[in-house]
Computed example of a mutant assay.
Amino acid sequence: MIKLQSIEKTYPARGGGAPVPALSGIDLTVGRGEIFGIIGRSGAGKSTLLRTINLLETPTAGRVLVDGVELTALPAAELRAARRSIGMIFQHFNLLSSRTVYDNVALPLELAGVRKAAIRQAVDPLLELVGLTDKRDRYPAELSGGQKQRVGIARALANGPKVLLSDEATSALDPETTGQILELLADINRRLSLTIVLITHEIAVIKEIGHRIAVLDGGRIVEKGAVFDVFAHPVHATTRGFVDPVVNRGLPDSLRHRLSPVPAPDANPVLRITFTGDRATSPVISMLSRKFNLDLNIWHGQVDEIQGSPFGTLVVEAVGTTTAIEAAISLLRVNNLGVEVIGHALPGSLRAAG
């Protein structure tokens, strides 16, 4: 549905200096009907990348294709027409304060020269879709933040787009309203088979409704894949920085200071075990203790769901012979359970943690 090929974007520097790179070597494909999340910290280039899809930002190099049409090759008039198939919603809503809810949603159709009767036939169902039929004649100042964003979503859908771009659409909302807007976007995705690309600096947003994810750092994609896979096995340090707090992979400071990165006399290895799918509730700890005569002191753990599938992490201190611990790690890996040694418990940690 969307293909970005070898995208580069640089901005001229102030004072005639060297150009400032914003995007470098971006290759990305988004499938039809997919909810694709792009995450990055401030300055990573995610807004620039999103605006490249509809060519509100023209790439310095590379190709942008949407639904088989190369936007980067279109003359201005054809590009304007092609943009009608790409809707966009914004963090701060961008509603016209002097127009009612109905008139804000109708605006794109008015600009396209659609007749009033056809506008009414399009707008009224959209207001019902986003749950604002009773707010039809209200003005933006009379609406809550969540209601304003619903107007923005309805307006973005007015031209019947094939793609919806979401530019930090929930960042200005409270957690409860954020959940409601994400639920609405997921419902629209299912009902309309709409391709949605959303950018955010909050990975919990993508965890909630995303199918696939790309992690942006310094204008480059450093990791991408299915949401479940990236959460379960983050590879890049930037990705781990986003994922660990959300799925509780990280250790609290009270436990982290008890770890040594290298083995020390009388120190025991500390393992992080990752459980996915049916294995998330399997009795692994008791099995390892019996089979290898190990004491496994539980430091930290959590069971969560990602995209409806169970996912869990458990941090344990393994007390036993080196041979037994190595055998236990091997057995975990043979059974497709993630396991890594994250450090070694300093002397006294077992008593303190237990």
Rank of each mutant, 00 (worst) to 15 (best):
I2W: 04
A13Y: 02
R32L: 06
R32V: 03
G43D: 03
T58Q: 15
A61K: 05
V69D: 09
E70I: 02
L71S: 05
T72V: 10
L74H: 11
L74V: 12
P75S: 09
I89R: 05
N94W: 00
L95H: 01
L95Y: 03
D103G: 01
V105N: 03
K116R: 15
V123Y: 00
L126A: 04
G131H: 09
G131D: 06
D134E: 15
R138W: 03
E142F: 07
E142I: 09
S144P: 09
K148R: 15
A154F: 02
A154Q: 04
A156N: 01
V163W: 04
D167H: 11
E168H: 10
T170L: 11
T170A: 12
S171E: 05
I181M: 09
L182A: 10
T195N: 05
E202K: 07
I203P: 09
I221Q: 05
G225S: 13
F228N: 06
V230E: 05
H236N: 15
N248S: 12
L251I: 13
H257F: 10
V284H: 12
I285A: 12
M287S: 07
S289W: 01
N293Q: 15
I306L: 13
Q307P: 01
Q307C: 11
G308W: 12
S309L: 15
F311G: 04
T321F: 12
L346G: 11
A352T: 10
A353I: 14
G354C: 04
